[in-house]
């Protein structure tokens, strides 16, 4: 509801709130904008502006280990997204459609990746894949990334499930009944009627899973090995002790990619998925 006249509740029109809003925006954006601007700065010490250069981008693109880490990140994100969408869609359909014993238990289990601290999940997966189910070493790429892929699926599929479930809520069941009346089988109806309705949710959930995977550091940090570095893990090892313009350039690239992906996801999921991704 929009208010046409500035009323007593139009808090944004008051200067203290306006000033606060501006101050917060500066606080949130100045570090990132400085980082991005100074990635083009022609100076190693990188404090004072010494002219525009793309040198550091050239260095980033010429750094083989960084590129390999980036390719690993993209591969992991793609594969884990595919599985997260499949598992998330099944979960969403299951919870949307059926009443069954232990349903609350399953829902609780699905909430785990959201509530368990990342560090605990990271060490749990580290222990599991070291002691219980050691992943075979010297496997050929991309199978050596298996541990990280599984770890990423396990924290992203329940996010996908909640996005898809929110989308399913708007499904008109009469369409399904019509399909059944006209002789379609249960599976046929699922594929031809329900699945098309789910599609925006699947795409949005998939992009969410992709971004979560691409962004993850803590869990990957515990499940990656010397040969299976991802982009954030590589960047972490670079920035641990120093601030360099190469890292600024690499970070800028990642910022642009994730922001673009999330913007697409948000646009696709529209209003009904937004509630599911927002933390409550």
């Amino acid at each position: 509801m929009s208010r046409s006249r500035p009323g007593p509740l139009d808090y944004l029109a008051r200067w203290p709130l306006r000033a606060w809003m501006v101050a917060t925006t500066v606080f949130l954006y100045s570090p990132l904008l400085t980082l991005m601007v100074f990635s083009f700065n022609n100076s190693r010490r990188n404090i004072v502006w010494r002219g525009f250069t793309l040198d550091y981008y050239a260095q980033v693109l010429g750094d083989d280990s960084l590129i390999q880490a980036f390719i690993n990140s993209l591969t992991i994100a793609l594969i884990s997204t595919l599985f997260s969408v499949l598992l998330g869609a099944a979960t969403a359909l299951l919870l949307w459609r059926f009443r069954f014993p232990f349903k609350a238990g399953l829902e609780g289990g699905l909430a785990l990746p959201i509530v368990v601290p990342e560090i605990c999940m990271g060490v749990a997966l580290l222990v599991f894949f070291t002691k219980v189910l050691p992943w075979p070493t010297n496997m050929v790429w991309p199978f050596n990334l298996g541990v990280i892929i599984i770890a990423h699926i396990s924290f992203s599929f329940s996010f996908v499930a909640s996005v898809v479930r929110a989308r399913l809520a708007s499904f008109n069941r009469e369409q399904e009944e019509a399909a059944r009346d006209l002789g379609a089988s249960e599976w046929r109806t699922l594929i031809d009627v329900i699945l098309p309705h789910m599609r925006p949710g699947l795409v949005a959930g998939g992009l969410l899973a992709f971004t979560l995977s691409l962004d993850d550091f803590v869990i990957t940090f515990f499940t990656s090995g010397p040969d299976t570095t991802t982009f954030p893990v590589k960047v972490y090892s670079m920035i641990r002790f120093s601030v360099t313009p190469e890292v600024n350039a690499a970070s800028t690239l990642l910022i642009v990619i994730t922001v673009a992906l999330t913007a697409i996801a948000l646009r696709l999921q529209g209003s009904d998925g937004a509630a599911a991704t927002a933390p409550h």
């Binding site: 099944a90 990746p113 599991f128 599984i150």
Partner: peptide
């Protein structure tokens, strides 16, 4: 068929690791 994959995954790669820790 909808129940099995997510439940198995949940048990194998989330609950089991947490249980081991």
């Amino acid at each position: 068929s909808l129940l099995a994959p997510p439940t198995l995954f949940l048990f194998a790669f989330l609950l089991a690791p947490l249980f081991v820790v």
